[in-house]
Write a protein that binds this DNA or RNA. Structure first.
Length: 564
RNA sequence: UGACCCGUGGUGUAACGGUAGCACUGCAGAUUUUGGUUCUGCCUGUCAAGGUUCGAAUCCUUGCGGGUCAACCA
């Protein structure tokens, strides 16, 4: 559709630091000039928009440089990981539009090899079994500003270490009684080099290896070697792993002899204003029922965004726009909203929906008449076609579109004022009725038969309103979502209160709306622009009787902004 | 008071010693049967001080500011 445009952008776009590094490596012929990345989630939760950045980066870089990208589950901790998460992660990556082809891997695929490597370190005198508790080990490790002290078990013989490690593996010892540690440097300023734990005892069933193992490798001992085994060239991760890199390299240097080496590179993770991103906090929102689940449309999870009505294209464009660098950043959530609007504007058919109905009676329109008016589905899409919308004497318009005593700048309806009903006629408000509480209940208007849309006869009127016919429209539940947090920085709670004190009490409002009848057959995930209101998406909670819509995002609203 | 990483408009991100650009936001205007879209214009920036250089956002030094690291988590 707009590929030429994308190519143009692509060729003129400046390179990020990872692209520079990769191009440099290719030029130098490093690793035979191959580019092979991986996306390595731990299956202990759902993916969120921050992961989307990483997915787009890893798969995107591979694509750009004619390389490959693997999907690898980092499943070295059986007590936290579940198959449910594996499945949701695969679904989300696919939905975003990426394909790992036949390269689906698990760190657990490599448990045998990792064990062999641990044995090698022991035999080389570079690893030892420590019998101390985690508390003692932690104590001995010291603090970043002071060196640690060496474990009394540090200088056991190779034979003793081999015997102990073997017995750890065969299940002789309870959890926590022994660990295997690398023998590196207890005085290193880098805490990760102070004899890091390689293996711990966990009598736990693993989602893939079952009961085969009761010792499991730590992240650091698994990750770089997994990269190596898969032929990864550029192992891209977030900044907090920067300090792990010397250890990543240490294992490779001490275990392998080939020239090929994966290299770890770090980038700054995505942060979004008005959003929390940590798995822990998202889990808390789910568990404590602040939201309906991981896929609640207010959640920044991929599944939440999908349900909210975001498209994969819009998320990929967003990921592209936020860029990649090493400095901490907070992206304005408005940029995400811009990205969906941009895409939906091109692809979403327009319909009329009235969220807060106010009845209009056209006093000079025949009571039994119905006209089938033909409207454009999408002015941005010449191939979008048309639809038929019934028009009759009694209509609903948006309550906001009438003011009893409107200011000059108000281009909508008021006593004696004229507006166009989009795709229909110009009408004039002659009178209105109120109930005993002063609420306006009905508007009495006249229509001008000369001004039918498309007739060529048209006076200039300032406002154009959307509408539905009272006797033809259908009811729909509309869920109006707003940002989940009141504060730009949700963690900035008053007097030490946590992020939950910043929850926006108005993040969800449910209303009963009236929509044009043609969309009766809409299916979950169908997306529309409710004209003049915003983009909406059919929710899976819809039933045959009643459609449920989620508001994805409002339209840009200069009127609303003027009044702030 | 250790090691490592990072400081470019309001927010992001470019400029590989040679005109500080792009996107989002904001503001102003044009077009518009969506106060949408589109188009045009404008506002706003190199953390500071020294040094190297014909020339520094870029290199060096110092300072200041921010981040990361002390799970048998990843």
């Amino acid at each position: 559709m707009n590929t030429s445009n994308e190519h143009k952008e692509e060729s003129t776009r400046s390179k990020n630091f990872l692209e520079m590094i990769i191009e440099n490596d290719i030029q130098k012929g490093k690793n035979e000039g191959r580019v092979h990345t991986r996306f390595p989630p731990e299956p202990n939760g759902y993916l969120h928009i921050g992961h989307a950045k990483s997915i787009c980066l890893n798969f995107g870089l591979a694509e750009k440089y004619n390389g490959k990208c693997n999907l690898r589950f980092d499943d070295t901790n059986p007590t936290k990981e579940e198959e449910e998460y594996v499945n949701s992660i695969m679904e989300d990556v696919r939905w975003l539009g990426f394909d790992w082809e036949d390269r689906l891997f698990y760190a657990s695929d490599y448990f045998d090899q990792l064990y062999e490597w641990a044995v090698k370190l022991i035999k080389d005198g570079k690893a030892y079994v420590d019998d101390q508790s985690s508390d003692v080990i932690s104590e001995q490790r010291g603090v970043p500003t002071r060196p640690g002290v060496e474990s009394p078990y540090r200088n056991r013989s190779v034979e003793e270490n081999m015997d102990l490690f073997h017995r750890m593996k065969s299940g002789e010892f309870p959890n926590g009684s022994h660990v295997l540690r690398a023998k590196i440097d207890m005085a290193s300023p880098n805490m990760h080099m102070r004899d890091p734990v390689l293996y711990r005892i966990m009598h736990a069933r693993h989602h893939r290896t079952g009961d085969k193992w009761c010792i499991y490798p730590m992240y650091d001992f698994a990750h770089g070697q997994s990269d190596y085994l898969e032929g990864i060239t550029h192992s891209i991760c977030t900044l907090e792993f920067e300090i792990h890199r010397p250890l990543y390299d240490w294992f490779l240097d001490n275990l392998i002899e080939t020239d090929y080496r994966p290299r770890q590179h770090e980038f700054a993770r995505l942060n979004l204003s008005y959003t929390v991103m940590s798995k822990r906090k998202l889990l808390e929102l789910v568990n404590e029922k602040y939201v309906s689940g991981w896929d609640d449309p207010r959640m920044p999870t991929i599944s939440g965004l999908r349900r909210r009505g975001f498209t994969p294209e819009s998320i990929r464009n967003f990921a592209d726009r936020v860029g990649v660098a090493k400095r901490e950043n907070v992206i304005d959530v408005g940029l995400l909203e811009f990205s969906v609007r941009e895409h939906l504007n091109k692809v979403a058919p327009r319909i009329f929906a009235v969220l807060d109905p106010l009845k209009v009676i056209l006093t000079n329109y025949p009571e039994d008449k119905t006209e089938d008016l033909v409207l454009e589905n999408n002015p941005e899409d010449t191939e979008g076609g048309t639809r038929v919308v019934p028009f009759s004497r009694e209509l609903y318009i948006e309550r906001d579109d009438f003011m009893e005593d409107p200011p000059n700048k108000f281009f909508r309806l008021g006593p004696g004022r004229e507006v166009r009903l989009k795709g229909a006629y110009i009408i004039k408000c002659e009178d209105f009725k109120k109930d005993e509480n002063g609420n306006i209940t009905e508007l009495y208007c006249t229509y001008d038969p000369e001004t039918k849309s498309g007739s060529g006869v048209s006076r200039k009127v300032k406002g154009t309103l959307h509408w539905v016919s009272v006797n033809h429209c259908i009811d729909a539940e509309i869920r109006i979502y707003d940002r989940l947090f009141k504060n730009e920085d949700p963690d900035d709670g008053e007097d030490g209160k946590d992020f939950k004190s910043n929850l926006n009490p108005d993040s969800l409002k449910v209303v009963n709306g009236k929509i044009e009848p043609g969309v009766k057959e809409a299916r979950p995930q169908d997306k529309f622009q409710f004209q003049r209101l915003g983009y909406f998406c059919v929710d899976p909670d819809s039933t045959g009787d009643k459609l449920v819509f989620n508001r994805t995002v409002t339209l840009r609203d200069t009127w609303n902004r003027m009044n702030k």
